[in-house]
């Protein structure tokens, strides 16, 4: 998997996050290249999700900078933005480890809500929408058709479009959540354990989807994952975190054989698991 080098999209510099006495992230620095899949692995409690929370504005980092080189809007400092602006203006969008859909709304509605800002403008802040003006109806129709063509079909959700999202099986909910994040039109997509709870076939489909998003659509992906069959197969680059610090980074091959990683992340005797390529 050798690709031509690309520019840096996100650069994390000396990030530290403390909760009272607990240091969840300790002076972490990391580069996320544009148009690539970057994997983040590390044992439970290593600070991976905290990193996401800092990135997406849910936590304010204690110190450190998060610079995003936005392709059209120039440089943005993510640590200074509230969470909704991270998604809206910086177009850094995330999913959640414990799926957070809008359970009573349908799949299609979930996707449309994600385009809130675009549609809200099109509805002239509800005025045009209230009087059913053609401009708004057009915009809404387009949004739905775009969702349909791009995501419902690709994610094989079309036949479920009008079902309440919360009633669907776990694996499908994971897919909806990714689809919903995509509807925000991200430049950087942060996926928090997207393969958790998926069966092997679904994992394989996820691999395919991630490669498509990155390869065809040029979306950079930051991926937290425990499922080695996913991380090792799709990542261009992997960062390993343990106790809030980065202990290694490099290509999957490199990381796989890094003695530090094997020791800190998997314990002394479980080497076969990482080289074996799959966890249960």
């Amino acid at each position: 998997m050798s690709k031509t080098p690309t520019s840096t999209l996100l650069s994390v510099r000396n990030l530290t996050m403390r909760f009272g006495g607990l240091t969840a992230i300790d002076d972490l620095s990391l580069e996320v290249p544009a148009g690539r899949i970057t994997g983040i692995i590390g044992p439970n409690g290593a600070g991976k999700t905290t990193l996401f929370n800092c990135l997406t504005g849910f936590y304010k980092p204690t110190t450190g900078t998060l610079r995003l080189a936005h392709p059209t809007r120039g440089e943005m400092r993510l640590e200074a933005l509230p969470s909704h602006r991270v998604a809206r203006d910086a177009q850094v969008v995330r999913t959640f480890q414990n799926i957070r859909l809008f359970p009573k709304m349908t799949v299609l509605e979930n996707l449309i809500v994600a385009q809130h800002n675009v549609l809200q403008r099109a509805s002239k802040f509800s005025i045009a929408g209230l009087f059913k003006l053609p401009g708004y109806r057009q915009a809404e129709r387009e949004a739905i058709e775009r969702d349909d063509a791009m995501w419902l079909q690709r994610l094989k959700l079309e036949h479920l479009a009008d079902d309440a999202a919360g009633d669907l099986p776990y694996g499908i909910q994971r897919r909806i959540e990714i689809g919903r994040a995509l509807c925000v039109d991200p430049v950087l997509l942060c996926l928090d354990e997207p393969a958790a709870g998926l069966n092997p076939r679904e994992s394989a489909e996820l691999n395919e989807l991630l490669l498509y998003l990155c390869g065809e659509m040029g979306i950079a992906i930051l991926l937290i994952e425990h499922d080695m069959s996913v991380v090792m197969n799709v990542s261009d680059h992997i960062g390993v975190i343990s106790y809030g610090r980065k202990i290694a980074e490099g290509t999957p091959e490199h990381v796989k054989h890094d003695p530090q990683v094997i020791k800190a992340y998997l314990g002394e005797d479980e080497e076969e698991e990482v080289t074996g390529g799959a966890t249960a």
Binding site: T56, G57, F58, P82, S83, H84, R85, V86, A87, R88, D89, V93, R94, F96, R100, L101, F102, P103, K104, M105, E109, I112, V113, A114, H116, N117, Q120, R180, A181, V184
Partner: peptide, 17 residues
């Protein structure tokens, strides 16, 4: 729709911008 989304999950709303 945003109101209903807010009722369902406020955090997810923020994450959707």
């Amino acid at each position: 729709r945003a109101w209903e989304a807010l009722r369902e999950d406020e955090i997810a709303c923020q994450a959707m911008g």
